[in-house]
Nucleic acid binder design. Structure first.
Lengths: 79, 79, 79, 79
DNA sequence: CACTGGAAAATGCCGC
DNA sequence: GCGGCATTTTCCAGTG
């Protein structure tokens, strides 16, 4: 019956999202644990967070730089 | 040398968090994919999100109910 | 003069917020007083806070229930 | 009956807190409105918040200064 | 004075 | 593409 099939499909989608949400939460907890452990070793988690954000920004900048470089190379027929 | 050891330890903590952040992002992307797929099957993602939130709330409520019961029992000296 | 006018306007906004902040703080103090008084009458403020939170959640849940119903009706073309 | 009286008293405390919570929420909403209005007039609410915090600190510092002054005056028999 | 919980801010997402 | 909204993260006060 069509309605039941639709219900099953919907349920399937919902459960997939729920499963992923759980995994996500589990990882967030792990991150918290790392900060707790770092704190126990005398590191300041606020500073660590700033550092990590900086590093992410740097990586991103480097990637973008590379993308631009490739764009130029393509434009100049160097690719 | 002590400083180097500390640096290594800090680096280790930072890299663990970074790795976990990546995993988290990957899962977020997966969730987005599920919603996209669901949408392609005619489901309204806003409604789905509401539904999922409700289900989570229900689960949470059940857990909390027990916690409250225990709190009350403690307050009434029944523990 | 434009700058002065802007300064006056900004000052007005700032003072309004400051006044409201004071009122808010005053109310927070009142709440604390109630808890202190309740405690003096043998009530456990932690339990009271849980109770109050629960009641708020119940009220909120009732409101949201109606919102969800409307969302579903809309999704099912019943609106 | 004692239990009923206690229940009434508890209810009274709870309702007083709830009433105060509502007032507090109402004021928070008013504050938000002021920021919205300020934003509509071209002011940056983040900057405003910083400013207000600064002013609060200044006031506090001034009060403290005055308190110390009075302490000294008392010590010197000038009060 | 450290810590949890709640408010505020920042970020990212969605619809228009 | 942008503005509004929701989620996430950050901050701070209150508590023990």
């Amino acid at each position: 019956m069509t309605t039941s099939i639709a219900a099953d499909q919907l349920r399937s989608f919902v459960e997939r999202v729920e499963r992923l949400n759980e995994e996500k939460k589990s990882i967030s907890d792990d991150i918290k644990d790392v900060y707790t452990e770092a704190k126990g070793n005398g590191y300041d988690s606020k500073v660590m967070k700033t550092l990590i954000k900086e590093r992410a920004k740097d990586r991103e900048a480097r990637q973008e730089e590379r993308a631009i470089l490739e764009l130029y190379e393509t434009a100049l027929g160097m690719s």
